[in-house]
Structures are given as structure tokens and as C-alpha cells.
């Protein structure tokens, strides 16, 4: 139990640092305004199913808020990640494999296969980035820009997340 806590605590800090130290710098270097890289949603995606929904939502809010403090955009990332955490159970039940889930383990690429993982990740990631861009623009007047930003960032982030999964996904 305490080992798990330590593990998820490390993930929390790890994804936070990865986002603000690596991907934020990449965004700055690329400086292509349409693209933003989102790696930290993987923390929520990787949480085991037995974790309380309310706790997942709260953790999403907390991680988003921390990211916001670095990005200097209080509430924007937090609202997106909170929404994503809230909708995770719905997506999970939507893409549920025939044999069901192992609630004690992280839902990973190796456990349920690539097509399952793609559905799971892309649905939630798209939702996350969409909410992020809506919060960021804060008006539907620029709905075309919202969609364009969402699409490009979604593609870029999906590639990063897949690559990261292939390299570092927890096998157990």
C-alpha cells in the first residue's frame, strides 16, 4: 500500500516535472503556436481503476493547478484535467474489453492491447485538449481556432504519449 502510494506520488512529481521541464521547453523551442504537448494527462490515464473516482478528480485538479502555476495560467490546465478525470470512468466503461478490467493495475498498453489503448487515450486526450483550449480562449467566437489548436495539439501529444508508453509503460 505504502509502496503504491510512493509509486503514484513519484509519478505525480515525475509527470509534473516532465511537463514543465521538458515539454514546456520543447514548446518554447518549437514556438509553433498551434502545437502544445500534453504529457501529464498520462498520470490520470495510468491510475489504477480501484482509485476512487472522486480522488481521481481531485488529483486531476491538483496536478492541473500545479502545471498552471508554472504556465502562469491559473485554472486553465486544472479545468481540463478535472474534466478528463471526471469522464475517465465513462470512457473506461465505453471501451471495456470483453474479459473486463483488472482493477488493481494501471490500464496500460501491454495489458489490453494497442487498439484498446488508442481508443482510451485518444478519447480522453482529445477531451482534455478541447476543454483546455475552450478554457484558454474562453469564447466560442474563435471556434475554428479552438478546433485547429485542439487537433494539432492532439496529434502531437498523442504521438508523444504513445512513444512514452512504448518506452516506459509499467509492465506490471
Amino acid at each position: 500500500m505504502s509502496r503504491d502510494l510512493l509509486k503514484y506520488g513519484l509519478w505525480f512529481v515525475g509527470f509534473f516535472l516532465l511537463q514543465v521541464l521538458l515539454f514546456r521547453e520543447v514548446e518554447r523551442q518549437v514556438a509553433w503556436s498551434y502545437v502544445q504537448f500534453f504529457i501529464y494527462p498520462l498520470f490520470i490515464l495510468w491510475l489504477p481503476l480501484r482509485v476512487h473516482e472522486a480522488l481521481v478528480i481531485f488529483l486531476g485538479f491538483l496536478l492541473g493547478l500545479l502545471i498552471d502555476l508554472v504556465y502562469n495560467s491559473p485554472g486553465v490546465h486544472a479545468s481540463a484535467l478535472t474534466a478528463m478525470a471526471f469522464f475517465r470512468p465513462f470512457i473506461l466503461s465505453w471501451v471495456q474489453p470483453r474479459e473486463g478490467y483488472n482493477v488493481n493495475m494501471s490500464p496500460t498498453l501491454w495489458q489490453y492491447g494497442l487498439s484498446w489503448f488508442l481508443k482510451y487515450v485518444s478519447a480522453l486526450l482529445f477531451l482534455h485538449i478541447l476543454v483546455y483550449n475552450i478554457s484558454s480562449f474562453f469564447t466560442f467566437y474563435y471556434w475554428k481556432d479552438i478546433l485547429l489548436h485542439t487537433l494539432w495539439s492532439f496529434v502531437a501529444s498523442l504521438i508523444c504519449i504513445l512513444a512514452f508508453n512504448l518506452l516506459f509503460s509499467p509492465r506490471r
Binding site: H52, E53, A54, I57, F58, F61, G64, L65, D68, S73, P74, G75, V76, A78, S79, T82, A83, A85, F86, S135, S136, F138, T139
Partner: peptide
């Protein structure tokens, strides 16, 4: 807790919106 996830979600989103409009210049203007 399961049922509580909806109000928690709504409450946290409300907090987010308040944060957004009070600390982000563009969103505040809009």
C-alpha cells in the same frame, strides 16, 4: 463518494472558472 464525484467535479470546475477569470487577463477581459 461515487455519487459525490459529480458535485465534486462541478465544484472544482467552478473553482477553475473563478481562477481563470480572476488571474488570466484575456479571459478576464472576455
Amino acid at each position: 463518494m461515487r455519487k459525490g464525484s459529480v458535485p465534486l467535479f462541478l465544484a472544482l470546475e467552478l473553482v477553475c472558472i473563478l481562477l481563470i477569470v480572476s488571474f488570466n487577463e484575456n479571459q478576464q477581459a472576455i
